[in-house]
Amino acid sequence: MSQSLEKVMDAVDVETLLVCDSEAEGRSLMLDILKGFGFTDVDVVFAQFEGPGVRIRGRAYVHRPADKYHWLQQAGKAG
């Protein structure tokens, strides 16, 4: 995990408009994007398809509750 990602309290959301043909395609594209960023715990929180594409929000959990949070281990170190 990069030092920057260690500072994420819980999740990273990615919101965008994807040019595609359907909501299903948009969802698949968003998951690909998140996995391409190197995230593994990924999901689509919201998707709304209209003619031009899908308005979509993907989420990658960096720290889920009960994980060991890097931002606690990093406390005291220069950010």
């Binding site: 819980d10 999740a11 929180v45």
Partner: peptide
Amino acid sequence: TDEAYSGGPISAP
């Protein structure tokens, strides 16, 4: 704003 999202924990943002 995660009230209706059931796929994971509520996030701080």
